[in-house]
């Protein structure tokens, strides 16, 4: 959680040479170990926080270990084939996770493509452009969206969103972009695209709230400096605000992505639940989290249960990998200058 909090000082804005970087007036000197007053409470506090931090890490390893232990039958029977096979047949006891991995990644990607511009746009409007009196109520409304339970959103998805997509948006997409295989084929409404849209709605509030805090933490001096150089409002936003907050915003997006990968209930209700890798976004799909939620309760054979646990393990793996990849991307992207 400390990612974005620590970001602004680390990524100095473009105006650092102008000597405008705000200096911390040495307030933390008292806490350093070498100087300052020694108190037993300091070391107790230190060990306490250390313990807290370690318990979180231990929890992740414990979850990973338990998943691994509970899926050993499936791991030993299918090996790596589990990751590349598209066969999911509980009767014949053949299990492969590829369509679910595909569905999870694609639906999350769709969600990010929709949610990131929307969230950052909303956050910018709320911090930079909106009249002061609408900021707080609007921000509150956005956060209210995250209070809608996932099942409710799913039911709304089935009965309101999906029919609208089927009657309006999808036919339009097909007529406008039908040349691309992404928008071809029969339209059922429930589809991987509908799944992506519902995830986008669910991750909007978190990306917006975090982005808003980050943009708010950009020092006012940055903006004033840009205005002083004769920049327009757009230029100020681009040069002073966005490039300063870049890393933090990226963190916000990763946080949203984490949620997107694991979203279950609402997605299950609108994605069509078909373990298939289709080119078209109108085709039904399936996600890792959904198959566990759908089939776990009625799985009676041991290998079936183990395969479902392995799906959980794969989901954990995919989440860790995607996050690691994002971190690498951030490092490469953060190091290549400050141009937004």
């Amino acid at each position: 959680m400390g990612r974005w909090a620590s970001v602004p000082p680390a990524s100095a804005g473009p105006f650092q040479n102008l000597g405008m970087k705000t200096k911390d007036p040495g307030g933390d000197a008292g806490f350093s170990q070498d100087t300052g007053v020694k108190s037993p409470w300091d070391s107790i506090f230190k060990w306490f926080t250390f313990l807290m931090a370690m318990s979180v890490i231990a929890l992740i390893f414990l979850v990973g270990y338990e998943l691994f232990k509970s899926s050993r039958l499936s791991i030993s029977k299918f090996g790596w084939r589990f990751l590349v096979s598209s066969d999911w047949d509980p009767v014949a006891e053949q299990f492969g996770a590829l369509p679910f991995i595909f569905g999870t990644l694609v639906s999350s990607l769709i969600a990010l493509i929709i949610a990131v511009p929307l969230s950052i746009g909303t956050a910018l409007y709320l911090t930079e452009l909106a009249p002061v009196w609408v900021r707080a109520p609007l921000a509150f409304l956005v956060q209210l969206l995250s209070a809608v339970p996932s099942v409710i959103l799913g039911l709304w998805g089935i009965f309101v969103m999906v029919p609208w997509l089927r009657e309006n948006l999808f036919p339009w997409l097909r007529s406008a972009f039908g040349f691309s295989p992404l928008f071809q084929g029969p339209i059922y409404g429930v589809s991987i695209l509908a799944g992506g849209i519902i995830i986008a709605i669910m991750i909007l509030p978190i990306i917006t709230s975090v982005s808003r805090e980050i943009i708010r933490s950009v020092p006012g001096l940055q903006r004033e400096a840009a205005y002083a150089l004769g920049a327009t409002r757009w230029e100020v936003t681009r040069i002073a605000v966005l490039s300063y907050a870049k890393k933090g915003l990226f963190g916000a997006v990763i946080l949203g992505l984490g949620r997107a990968l694991g979203e279950t209930m609402a997605v299950t209700m609108v994605i069509g639940n078909r373990p298939e890798i289709a080119k078209s976004l109108f085709a039904p799909g399936y996600t890792l989290a959904s198959v566990v939620a759908n089939e776990f309760a009625e799985a009676t054979t041991e290998i079936y249960l183990h395969a479902l646990f392995e799906i959980g393990l794969v989901l954990l793996g995919v989440t860790v990998l995607v996050n690691a990849l994002a971190q690498l991307l951030l490092r490469a992207f953060g190091g290549s200058g400050v141009k937004a």
């Binding site: 509980p90 009767v91 089927r166 429930v190 209700m269 078909r274 759908n294 009625e298």
Partner: peptide, 29 residues
């Protein structure tokens, strides 16, 4: 080719969650 079980590999079709999921799909489509 398919067999019997609480969940099977369906040759065709869309999956709806619960009776309400199936009924909801059928009602609309």
């Amino acid at each position: 080719s398919v067999g019997k079980n609480a969940s099977v590999k369906w040759p065709v079709g869309l999956g709806g969650k619960g009776n309400e999921g199936v009924a909801g799909q059928v009602k609309q489509l």
